[in-house]
């Protein structure tokens, strides 16, 4: 099967799953759909030649995130989590969807030279100097770890800080329960 056809097929499935998430009445149903959405997103990233993003999406978006939300709903009880949307908000979401489809057309096509990401001079520098200057095969790794090493350090610190924040919030004794 052609790769472009596969991408279009995945995008159509993603649209159907997204609409069924919005329209779903029970939490279990919508959670299964969100998890499915993540898995199809991972497949889409693989088709768009970003397998590392796909790996992250599959493990964090579809495994860890879903596991946490499932346990929250299991402990809170499904009757306390009412997600049925009113008619007004469904109409509002569909208007939003139409506006988004209108502007998505303006984004340049994937992988063409006309897109601003491929026009920049720095990309040529990265492409040529990955092999000559850094001496490794992976372009992503050379940008992520060497050229932009300071940014990746900040990224690591963000995750570390998130962990510390979760620890602080959970260790604090909460007197007034959420009611």
């Amino acid at each position: 099967m052609n790769s472009d056809l596969m991408i279009i097929f995945t995008l159509i499935i993603l649209n159907i799953i997204g609409i069924s998430v919005v329209l779903s009445k029970s939490y279990t149903y919508s959670l299964v759909n969100i998890s499915l959405f993540s898995i199809f997103c991972a497949g889409l990233y693989l088709l768009l030649r970003a397998p590392d993003v796909g790996l992250t999406e599959a493990s964090i978006g579809s495994c860890i995130g879903t596991a946490i939300i499932v346990s929250v709903i299991k402990n809170l009880g499904e009757e306390r989590c009412n997600i049925a949307l009113s008619k007004f908000s469904i109409i509002f979401y569909f208007i939003l969807l139409i506006v988004m489809y209108k502007f998505v057309v303006l984004i340049p096509e994937f992988g063409t030279n006309a897109s601003p990401a491929n026009k920049s001079q720095i990309l040529e520098f990265y492409k040529t100097s990955t092999m000559n200057f850094i001496g490794i095969e992976s372009l992503v790794a050379s940008i992520l770890a060497s050229f932009r090493g300071f940014d990746t350090f900040g990224e690591t610190l963000v995750i570390y800080t998130a962990m510390i924040c979760v620890l602080i919030i959970i260790e604090i004794k909460i007197d007034a329960k959420f009611e």
Binding site: P51, D52, L55, T56, S59, I136, E137, S138, V140, A141, L144, A145, E155
Partner: peptide, 9 residues
Amino acid sequence: DSAPGGGFQ
């Protein structure tokens, strides 16, 4: 350094 992936993944 040679395949997609890395520390985060």
